[in-house]
């Protein structure tokens, strides 16, 4: 379904997981129009660990919302995990997102009335992936991967911030999406826990996942393989990070 229009966009890079061309986003408010993105171009390949940095209000979270299909661009084209995100309606976006993208939020955003393991099972339930009997097993496996399986049956309110973020990462991996998008995933965590979360992302990248992470923290950004700096709604820097240095 998503590949049908691909041939009409000649500029798409064949091996790109994220392919963005001239994306703009303008919000209308009582104070007048506000342009959050002013024409973004970005290409991300598989197994990249991309850190998106920028000051508050620079447009990095808006960009993340565009990539995940949570918000829609005013102009431009977005191809993410083989789908023309800019052309999909809300229903198609939901189906695509469920299978293609795992989203990690700054404030974890676990559903408070579901246990940790149920939160992880939710995306599988919504997208109908995996058989009913397998979902619990897979969710437990994912919680083991993020080292929180012993807390599987607890409600989020009974978990620490770090534990909640691990559950949120496990949830993002539930449908085995190729792309993980994280918006300030460590913004609400202490440095030790933040370090553990970043290490988790590194392991995911090693396993072939692509991670796009928004962060304020330059030290954490340096742990990525590529850095994209955004200011005033434009990409002002896009560079590979020398891991050894």
């Amino acid at each position: 379904m998503f590949k049908s229009n691909r041939s009409t966009i000649p500029t798409t890079t064949p091996d790109a997981l994220i392919d963005i061309h001239g994306v703009t986003k303008t919000y209308q408010s009582d104070a007048g129009p506000c342009q959050a993105l002013k024409g973004i171009d970005l290409h991300v390949r598989e197994s990249e660990f991309v850190a998106v940095v920028g000051k508050s209000g620079s447009g990095k979270s808006t960009l993340i919302n565009m990539i995940t299909g949570i918000d829609r661009p005013t102009g431009g084209e977005l191809w993410v995990v083989n789908a023309p995100v800019h052309t999909l309606n809300e229903g198609q976006l939901a189906v695509w997102r469920g299978r293609a993208v795992g989203v990690v939020f700054q404030f974890f955003q676990l559903l408070p009335t579901l246990t940790a393991i149920e939160n992880v099972m939710l995306p599988m339930d919504l997208s109908g992936s995996f058989r009913n009997g397998e979902r619990h097993k897979r969710a437990l496996q994912l919680l083991e991967e993020v080292e929180i399986a012993d807390q599987a049956d607890k409600l989020p309110a009974n978990l620490s911030g770090g534990q909640q973020q691990r559950v949120a990462i496990a949830r993002a991996l539930a449908n085995d999406p190729p792309l993980i998008v994280a918006d300030e995933p460590t913004g609400n965590l202490d440095s030790r826990t933040a370090e553990a979360v970043i290490a988790l992302f590194e392991r995911l990248v090693q396993k072939g996942k692509t991670v796009l992470m928004v962060t304020h923290d330059p030290d954490l950004a340096r742990r990525a393989t590529r850095l994209v700096r955004i200011a005033d709604g434009l990409v002002i820097e896009d560079s590979a990070i020398d891991q050894v240095a």
Partner: peptide
């Protein structure tokens, strides 16, 4: 509302 946003963010459709 926020929970609805999260459900949709992890693949929930409007009909669901």
């Amino acid at each position: 509302t926020r929970q609805i946003g999260v459900i949709k963010a992890v693949g929930g459709r409007t009909s669901q």
